[in-house]
Simulated assay, not measured.
Amino acid sequence: MKITAVQTVVVNAIHRNWIFVKVLTDQPGLYGWGEATLEWKTRAVCATIEDLEPFVIGEDPTRIEHVVRRMTGFSFWPLGAIGLSAVSGIEHALWDIKGKALGVPVHDLLGGRVRDNVAVYTHLRRAKIGAQVPTSDVNAFCDAVQETVEMGYNAIKLGFVPYTGYTAPLPEIRHVEKLAHAVRERVGDGVEIMTDFHGRPDSVEAARAYIDAITPIKPLFVEEAIQPGDVGAMAELARQVACPLATGERLFTPREFADLAEKRAVAYIQPDLAHCGGLTGGRKIAAIAEAAHMGIAPHNPMGPVAGAVALHFDLATPNFVIQEEAVGLVPWFRDICTQTYPLDMQNGVWGVPDAPGLGIEIDEAEAARHPFAQEEIPALEAILPDGRIANW
């Protein structure tokens, strides 16, 4: 069996363009789907997939590690977020092809499932664009949280922290504390709450002030309390607070995660399988984390193929904890797929798919109804009161 072509199908989902990758083979009707979505870098990722195509044409798609090494090793330059997202999308499709060729779901190829379902969490109102509520209105925010939980979720991730800098003003700390307590009181102790700082604090001290305000509600974790990449600062912060920390959506290589593990800098890591080299990279990262007693909570606010990849990974990964999803991002999220769709959530969990491969197919006719368009970029609003650009 040989790879004959690599194609991209771009679908505009308002705040991001989903980049679906279709790898074709010389076997009639046998192809695979992957996803290489990277916010606001659509043109660059699609062009990089074209640049990588010569490295994979003519190769056996079932030799997945070998094909990945062709893309990474022959590229010479470190690939970074754009390059590794392109690699990841192609890599996903290889697993899909192999599973289809053998007639088994991908989680069987990963050693078999170690659990019977996958716990998931969502965002406010399932991340539906245009349905968010400002944190300034505590009652309305709590109403939206309750509405989300009543959709069947047992866990939710929220943004409590404002755009900030090197200091955390006392009025802001007080408001975050009030908001967090109100949310916990509204949903009770049976719902896991996570909060994403998005790396907004520019200092360990500012991050610590907000974490201390949130800690009494016992969040499962605080995500990206500071910008990623400074393992020493993250480890220092972890020693100063009484709340589990998480990071990893903007880290890409096993080496980066090994640094976190060696310093015990966080309790949970969050690799994104659409950016870290796919299942090949994700499995290596998970093993590093397991050796350091760290749980794994994969990042994934993207499209349905990325969700399917995460589902198979989670089923076969012993130190998996909980999976991010954003299936409410656009009202037609489900429609972009054919009848094969493994991401139906019931009672806060995804079930076990048994279809060959990833168990998901993109309806290309439906996809064509949502062609590439310049995304709406919410990060452009991240401005501090004095006019300085903040971390979104």
Rank of each mutant, 00 (worst) to 15 (best):
P169I: 00
A140R: 14
P134D: 02
A213I: 09
V176Y: 05
P162N: 04
E185G: 09
A209P: 00
S136D: 13
N154S: 14
P162R: 00
R186P: 04
D137Y: 00
T167F: 13
I129G: 02
I129N: 02
A144Y: 00
Y153D: 09
V176M: 06
R126G: 01
G188D: 03
E205D: 12
Y163D: 12
T148Y: 07
P171H: 05
A209G: 08
P201F: 06
D137M: 02
E177M: 11
M194T: 10
A213E: 03
I217H: 06
N139S: 14
I211N: 13
I217P: 04
R208H: 03
E147D: 15
D137V: 00
E150H: 06
H123C: 12
A209M: 13
P219N: 07
E185S: 13
G152N: 06
D202F: 12
I217R: 05
A182L: 02
L158M: 12
I214L: 07
I129V: 15
L220G: 14
T135V: 11
Q132D: 13
P169S: 09
Y153E: 09
I156F: 09
I217S: 10
M151T: 11
Y166E: 14
A180H: 11
A168Q: 02
Y210N: 02
A144S: 12
A182Y: 03
H123V: 02
E185M: 06
L124W: 04
R208M: 10
E147H: 12
L158K: 07
R126T: 12
E147L: 10
A182K: 01
R126W: 08
A144E: 01
F160T: 09
G152W: 11
T164F: 07
T135Q: 11
T135D: 00
G130K: 05
L220D: 03
D212H: 03
A206P: 09
D189Y: 08
V138R: 01
S136P: 00
S136H: 09
G159L: 04
N154G: 14
S136V: 01
F221R: 03
E192Y: 12
M194L: 15
G130P: 12
T195K: 10
G130E: 04
H198C: 07
V222I: 15
R186F: 06
Q132N: 13
S203C: 07
T215R: 06
G130Q: 05
P162Q: 01
R208A: 15
F160L: 15
V187D: 07
F221S: 11
I129E: 11
K157G: 08
F197Q: 06
R174M: 11
I193Q: 08
S203L: 07
V183N: 03
V149F: 07
Y166N: 14
L179G: 06
N154C: 12
R174E: 15
E192N: 12
V222W: 01
M151W: 13
L158Q: 06
D137R: 09
I217Y: 04
R125E: 11
P171Y: 01
A155F: 08
G199Y: 02
I211L: 13
A127Q: 14
V145F: 09
I214S: 09
G190H: 15
R125I: 09
S203I: 02
D189K: 12
R186A: 14
A209Q: 15
H175R: 10
P201Y: 08
L170P: 03
F197P: 06
D143R: 14
V161P: 07
G159P: 00
P162G: 01
E177S: 15
T164S: 15
